[in-house]
Design a protein around this nucleic acid. Structure first.
Lengths: 230, 230
DNA sequence: CGAGCCGCGTGTACGGCGTACACTCGCCGG
DNA sequence: CCGGCGAGTGTACGCCGTACACGCGGCTCG
């Protein structure tokens, strides 16, 4: 009776937990509530289960986060093999960026990880392979991988990493006053907000800025490659 | 009596707390124990004071972290005015990097901040001013600031951000086995560890890699500037 | 067919965290 | 002298991650 009641209130056939269900729920929760809203307790509640149940499927929270990274990194498109290295690399990185826009928490979590997971290793491996196929020297690839850094995963670390929340939209008076203390920032802001098509908004097209920086790097890399090993 | 005892055991003349002392102690603690070891409670213990005492001088932990950032950003050398823009920018960024090596926690904390503090704003302002003085168009400066991202503060976000701890130094057997699953990474690792002067060690000269990437960007930027606004 | 194991899910508990809120107590101007 | 004020205190709350012992249902094997 108590059993029946429980089942009725639960209203679920009680599909058993497993690692994949846990990870998928964690990703979904992080997508919805942000990474700060992801606690083992919230996640367990989401799964209709007691907190400690999760620990039968992941060793601890760090492993949970690693698993989540694996899941989303696997979403990145495989490399094209029908073009030159530059467009292949470019498109792959833009695919990574698209993944990151779907999962805004992912960049932050990846930054916090100390050792790469197997999926991330595989991603890097195939990225290196693209450069090798493109005819780069191993040494140059090494430096390039360092130089690209987080851009390989589709994000750049900005100094201020999120634009203002929409409920207090940088009132212009404040910016005007700012002109006195930070004249150069002010000058830049003014120019940006004027030549931009959209009057309102942050004034920066993030996608454009990302591609600008990416192409700047790719062109520089290309030049280094052409001028050769000596 | 109890009073006297307390004062003797404390053995301090009890210099009163103030914001600067709190921030300095927090920076010192973070330098020594890492950012994870920095809690309001640990910090208060360090200051010989009860946890809540700190809250008379900073509003909350976020403000504490902001204050710490201000403190260390102020350590970055002011811009030189006796050279061309490129070496001036280059040297300033390398100064920022030196600061970051003194305070390894700083990059992580800066990443986590959502709005820049006044000191960071001032730093960015003077950085923009350097490009203006160098004859850049405002539009180009805007893109450049985005493209440089965290490099302006002296760090790049790597995919794996810390090298292996020294107590298990990447046993070569593991790497050998890795060759099967990640052939390209293996190939790169082999090349790097062979042509490097030091047999042991991480095999990467971080300072060299940083300067390589920095110069790659600066050269690219230079070229964009020279080819002009049209 | 019965027993015992095994592994998923549970309950309870601990130590740490950030911080709200009400307090004491010493100093300093009126 | 005294009243207020501000620095430092004490206690408490609600989170967090997770160690550890337990219940219990299903499967294996005698």
């Amino acid at each position: 009776m108590a059993r029946a009641e429980l089942e009725t209130t639960a209203a679920e056939p009680r599909t058993p937990l497993n690692r994949d269900r846990v990870l998928a729920a964690a990703v979904e929760l992080a997508d919805r509530e942000g990474v700060d809203g992801l606690s083992m307790r919230r996640l367990s509640a989401e799964l209709g289960v007691v907190p400690m149940a999760i620990y039968k499927h992941v060793a601890n929270k760090d492993e949970l986060l690693d698993g989540m990274i694996d899941l989303v990194v696997a979403e990145i498109d495989p490399p094209r093999t029908d073009t030159d290295w530059k467009t292949a690399v470019r498109e792959r990185i833009l695919s990574a960026r698209r993944m990151l826009l779907r999962h805004p928490w992912a960049s932050r979590v990846m930054e916090s990880r100390t050792r790469p997971t197997m999926t991330v290793m595989a991603y890097m491996d195939s990225m290196i392979a693209m450069f090798i196929a493109g005819g780069f020297s191993i040494d140059l690839i090494h430096h390039v991988m360092h130089a690209m850094g987080s851009r390989l995963m589709g994000f750049t670390q900005e100094l201020f990493n999120d634009q203002s929340d929409p409920d207090n939209p940088i009132q212009p008076a404040m910016l005007e006053a700012m002109g006195a203390t930070y004249p150069s920032i002010y000058q830049l802001w003014q120019a940006v907000s004027h030549d931009d098509a959209s009057i309102v908004g942050p004034g920066c097209d993030d996608q454009f800025e990302f591609e600008f920086a990416l192409d700047l790097m790719l062109d520089g890399i290309d030049r280094l490659k052409e001028q050769g090993p000596p």
